[in-house]
């Protein structure tokens, strides 16, 4: 399975981007091959509106079945849920994507059952 991380610059060492819809990149991690790749989320980062929904569509296109981000608004949550993508949120700032992955793999991140912020929260 592939997991997507919202990221500042697309590398596994970059910081986990706290915003989902406006993240410039997603870092993808394949749990079987244990390899990283990335997916450019520019179309959503630059969207005039509906960034969360566009990002959810990009996630689906990237083949990821779970996302790890800082926060998730109501429309992105609804769109990801409709596509059966699991959502994990790490509120703690300053973590790298790799550190977030370790946290997730060690079972310290619970799946989100609700959006945790309003749209346009930042």
């Amino acid at each position: 399975m592939k997991i997507a991380f919202s990221s500042m610059d697309g590398s596994p060492d970059s910081a986990l981007e706290m915003r989902f819809g406006r993240a410039k990149y997603f870092v993808l991690y394949d749990t079987e091959s244990r390899e990283f790749s990335n997916y450019e989320n520019q179309s959503s980062a630059d969207a005039a509106q509906g960034a969360g929904i566009q990002a959810a569509r990009n996630i689906v296109e990237s083949g990821a079945s779970a996302i790890i981000s800082g926060h998730c608004g109501p429309k992105a949550f609804k769109a990801l849920s409709a596509a059966a993508v699991k959502i994990f949120l790490i509120e703690e700032g300053g973590l790298s994507v790799k550190a977030a992955l370790e946290k997730y793999l060690s079972g310290q991140v619970a799946e989100a059952s609700n959006p945790d912020v309003e749209g346009h929260w930042i």
Binding site: Q49, G50, I53, A56, R57, A82, A83
Partner: peptide, 17 residues
């Protein structure tokens, strides 16, 4: 960006957008 679609599923409309 008012419509969410994922393969094999029916679209979801976000009327507010």
């Amino acid at each position: 960006n008012a419509i969410m679609h994922s393969k094999g599923k029916k679209p979801l409309f976000f009327t507010e957008l």
